[in-house]
């Protein structure tokens, strides 16, 4: 966690609205902030699916009651426990119509890849409410499969860097199982899973699909074409090549200027400052605003409203 995000009167970083407002919303003149739930997504690691969903539902109720009303700029993520997809779908139907809920959120650690038909009740409910399905890095351990391809890792930084592997599995699975054909309005958002790996994985998927199309005759397009229209990825943590500009040619090749959305990860230790975001100038508006605006259907807000925040309510 960011040490300076610990509230002056104690408590967890990110738990104090006034401090968050000062350090994040006002400081960067943010038009909208989508709350990510933090620890709540860890319910996916619990063996008891009923308890896990009850915790997630309690979080959702609390977030809707305590956080969303505080600031017009806040939007909420509906956390579900994916280990029982029927319960998760019921939760989406319970709260998915709330006007400030903009996505369904799970951890990237899971028992199996999210394109698997096991999870289709969740996709079905997301489609019903036209909500993107988002996964955030985390949820390793407990009930979930080891998120590293060949067995356990040893150190936290080693693990943290490699957790991007979960994103690869979910990306491939969601495309291959035809989620985007079955629900044409389905969208997958991968948060904190990294972005540099996305082009080469899509190239690999395209190449293998070209040879082995007959395995998945329900697909009508190349994996990379589905990704461009249905998958969104977030900037934080943006990989740092030795030559900063080395990142962009590959990302441009897959159309990432339309897929990338800024994420801060506030108040975590690996927070990204939007003012120091090294992205191509011509991508900035889309990455910092317009891609998220289109995905989450967020109306343009006036600068004055933004800076006044809660006071204008």
């Amino acid at each position: 966690m960011r040490y300076d995000a610990i509230p002056p009167n104690g408590g967890h970083p990110g738990s104090d609205y006034e401090l968050m407002r000062e350090q994040l919303l006002d400081r960067y003149d943010m038009e909208y902030v989508i709350l990510g739930g933090d620890e709540a997504i860890e319910v996916s690691t619990l063996a008891n699916p009923y308890y896990a969903q009850a915790l997630a539902s309690a979080y959702n109720d609390w977030m809707i009651a305590e956080w969303l009303p505080r600031d017009k700029r806040f939007k909420g993520s509906l956390v579900v426990a994916p280990q029982n997809p029927e319960l998760a779908a019921a939760e989406i139907r319970r709260l998915g119509a709330h006007p400030d809920i903009v996505q369904v959120l799970v951890s990237s650690g899971s028992q199996r890849p999210y394109g698997d038909p096991f999870f289709h009740p969740i996709w079905e409910a997301c489609a019903e409410f036209d909500l993107p399905f988002a996964l955030h890095l985390g949820g390793q351990g407990g009930l979930n499969s080891t998120p590293i391809g060949c067995g356990p890792t040893t150190f936290f930084w080693e693990t943290h860097a490699l957790l991007a592997e979960t994103g690869m599995a979910h990306l491939a699975s969601t495309i291959a199982h035809g989620v985007f054909e079955k629900w044409p309005n389905a969208r997958l958002v991968m948060i904190e899973c990294g972005v540099a790996w996305v082009p080469p994985i899509l190239w690999r998927l395209d190449e293998d699909y070209r040879a082995l199309r007959k395995e998945t005759p329900w697909l009508k397009r190349l994996p990379s074409e589905y990704a461009r229209d249905h998958v969104r990825i977030t900037t934080q943590p943006l990989e740092q090549p030795h030559n900063p500009s080395a990142l962009w040619p590959a990302l441009a090749d897959i159309g990432a200027e339309d897929m990338l959305m800024f994420a801060s990860d506030y108040p975590h230790w690996d927070f990204d400052d939007p003012d120091f975001l090294r992205i191509p100038q011509e991508w900035r508006e889309r990455v910092l605003s317009e891609n998220a605006r289109a995905l989450y259907k967020l109306p343009q807000r006036q600068l004055k409203q933004m800076t006044d925040g809660a006071l204008t309510r």
Binding site: G178, E181, R213, K214, E215, P217, W218, K220
Partner: peptide, 11 residues
């Protein structure tokens, strides 16, 4: 080959 499908059949 497997024919294009909207379901999960292998025809």
């Amino acid at each position: 080959t497997t024919l294009p499908t909207d379901s999960r059949d292998f025809a």
